[in-house]
Design a binder for these strands. Sequence first.
DNA 1: ATAATAGTGTCTATAAGACAGTATAAC
DNA 2: GTTATACTGTCTTATAGACACTATTAT
Lengths: 308, 308
Amino acid sequence: MENKLKDKKGLTEEAFLAAYDVNAFEHPSVTVDMLLLTIGEKEADDIRKLPEKELRVLLVKRAEHPYLGCWAVPGGFIGMKEGLREAVQRKIKDETGVADIYFEQLYTLGEDQEEVMRDPRTRVISVAYMALVDQTKIRPKAHDTTEDVKWFTVKKTFNRVEKEDASYSEIYTLSLESEDGKDKMDYEVTESHSTQSIYPIRKVSYKAQEKNKGHLGFDHYKLIDKAIERLKNKIEYTSLAFTLLPEQFTLSELQKVYEVILDKKLVKANFRRKISPMVIKTDSIQKSGHRPANYYTYNKDWRHNFME
Amino acid sequence: MENKLKDKKGLTEEAFLAAYDVNAFEHPSVTVDMLLLTIGEKEADDIRKLPEKELRVLLVKRAEHPYLGCWAVPGGFIGMKEGLREAVQRKIKDETGVADIYFEQLYTLGEDQEEVMRDPRTRVISVAYMALVDQTKIRPKAHDTTEDVKWFTVKKTFNRVEKEDASYSEIYTLSLESEDGKDKMDYEVTESHSTQSIYPIRKVSYKAQEKNKGHLGFDHYKLIDKAIERLKNKIEYTSLAFTLLPEQFTLSELQKVYEVILDKKLVKANFRRKISPMVIKTDSIQKSGHRPANYYTYNKDWRHNFME
DNA sequence: ATAATAGTGTCTATAAGACAGTATAAC
DNA sequence: GTTATACTGTCTTATAGACACTATTAT
């Protein structure tokens, strides 16, 4: 649509745009952050036992100011002519060497006064994305702006509830530990909910623990926390679990993925009944030190059969 | 934490920050957009009948380029020292005169190439928020940058499914109509889902209809669509419905709110059974041309009794 | 009486949870 | 046989859906 209307100053759109001065105001910077999550396996001591699974996030050790030497979620400034998703795509390629990965928008940082100061360089709005991968498919590598890359095991454990007059708080520990055990950061997470308001008012605060080996840069603990929450939520009604596994998997492996993310044990028979429409049995078999298991694949037309 | 480490160029953080030139790169602009949603009532012809309810969104008629004369979701540039939420809070106050309103982050626009060009002035990243209000509490007003403000009834109706080789598409009509009926915009929404990939790939496209009276600026149809979807999703497991009603309401009113948002009829007895833990009976009564109804309020400690 | 809505009781269908049992491999 | 996991059947309980019935007001 060509807009020939004139504004209050008598300008057409064309004239207005020609006169528009982008630099009349100061602009914030915009970055993307990428939470790359995966399910890793802890090598079992007994060969006959199945390996335990755990949730992991990819962190890079920063080789540049600010937060030089700290661990952080990979990310960076976006180009002027680059879409946010495209920027994330580029980061994923840089970080992992792979292009075809599931990711979705998670949360945009820069909401309140505290977050206005989140980067000492300038005002930074950061759009965070959550990406999910099968760990066996990728091999992360450090590059110019990063000194190291590691997978960190993520765990969020419940501590206690505190009741106040107008609110109650749930207190958790969010812990991050690198595979080699050299870096370990814990955060105390306090989620307070107002009991006064009609609508949910939720304030979350984070406190780094004294004994931490290593530091997490920026306010990235917020992103990790958000990502866990989102994943926990969505895994129940989507097919996201399958993005964390190879194309072929056993039902026990699948169950462990659910158990790690939901953070609770599931009853085998019930689990199998529930996910049966989402999977297809293959003729391959996984051999092991006990009864062999059937391999399954994701049933690609699960969705449209179950939404009318 | 004071960071005394030196980077590759031998600079401390302090020296690095002193030398940091914000203007070394061009920056995108950042705006917030605010989707203010409410439940409105269509005046019934028969006094004895209860009024029908419908979902409405607040749109402003732009008095400035670009999209001068078009309807748009209210919004604007953020200040350098202003948090995103704070900017939205300010807009809400400007637009409605009220401060205490529920709102949450919805979605950040600017994801792909098409969205890089979404504003003819410059590259604009827009962080959209969804706000929910009881329509009786507020009185929207136009101001300097807007020529008019109106509530638009929002409806999304299903048309058909089209099956292709590697995908299937659901086609909907998204319609917006002002209370006075003078402005009416329809969009054909095509949601295609890939049937090939392990993970959900969903592409949505929008097409304005020829017969439209009035235009919607920018890509704001995307936001309206996202907001409907979010609301539909969250109303089932949150207390958001109560933000759309006065403090006291009848169970029939509450049921109508759910029906409008979920876009289906509910069975009264079952609905009441399900929401009973969320509400408290008051001693007030609503008189009308039939059996009077009890007023209820939201049960503020519904949440923590139902999450262990 | 009638129109219109308020409010309740109960039967049925479906899904979730618990648990016990059998099967099959390596050692 | 033992260990460790794979896989299945069935009972119980909880939840969702359908439907019928009674109650109360204004006109």
